[in-house]
Simulated scan of single mutants.
Amino acid sequence: MLHTINTSPFESPAMEECIRFVQPGDPVLFIENGVYAVQNGNRFTDAIAALQKTSPVFALQPDLDARGISSVAPGVEGIGYDGFVDLVEAHQVNSWL
């Protein structure tokens, strides 16, 4: 299952709730304001690192760019819209709002 998170972890518990339910191997994609979670060096860096031990973590590059985020947590892969579509085609989607 692909988990998408579109809200900032500074404003919503969606990321923490998602992490509780992610199964090993489930990709997690941060989009819209959710990309603030993967900005390198913030208070969520350890949670992202722990998540990456069992699941791939992605961030939508256009959303990172739009928010001026140029440094992401190690191991987080920035993807474009084509990559987003590929993930959606390959997985059932659960959106965490």
Rank of each mutant, 00 (worst) to 15 (best):
M1T: 00
M1E: 00
M1C: 00
L2R: 09
H3T: 06
H3V: 00
T7I: 04
S8L: 00
S8D: 01
F10E: 00
E11I: 08
E11N: 11
S12K: 01
S12N: 13
A14I: 01
M15Y: 13
E17N: 10
E17P: 03
I19A: 12
I19N: 01
I19G: 02
R20Q: 14
F21M: 12
F21P: 01
F21Q: 15
F21A: 14
V22W: 05
Q23H: 08
Q23R: 08
P24G: 12
P27W: 14
V28L: 12
L29F: 12
I31A: 09
I31P: 06
E32R: 14
E32F: 11
G34Y: 06
A37Q: 06
V38A: 05
Q39V: 04
Q39F: 01
N40H: 10
G41Q: 04
N42A: 01
R43F: 00
R43Q: 06
D46S: 11
D46T: 06
A47V: 09
I48L: 07
L51M: 05
Q52K: 13
K53H: 10
K53L: 13
K53A: 10
T54H: 07
T54D: 07
S55C: 14
V57D: 11
F58I: 10
F58R: 10
A59T: 10
A59D: 06
Q61Y: 08
Q61S: 15
D63A: 08
L64V: 10
D65E: 06
D65I: 03
R67C: 03
R67I: 04
R67K: 05
G68N: 09
I69Y: 07
I69K: 04
I69R: 05
S70R: 15
S70K: 15
V72K: 04
V76P: 02
G78F: 12
I79N: 08
Y81F: 15
G83I: 09
G83D: 14
F84G: 05
F84I: 04
V85G: 04
D86Q: 15
D86V: 14
L87D: 12
V88H: 07
E89F: 09
A90L: 07
A90N: 07
Q92I: 05
V93Q: 06
V93F: 05
N94V: 15
N94C: 07
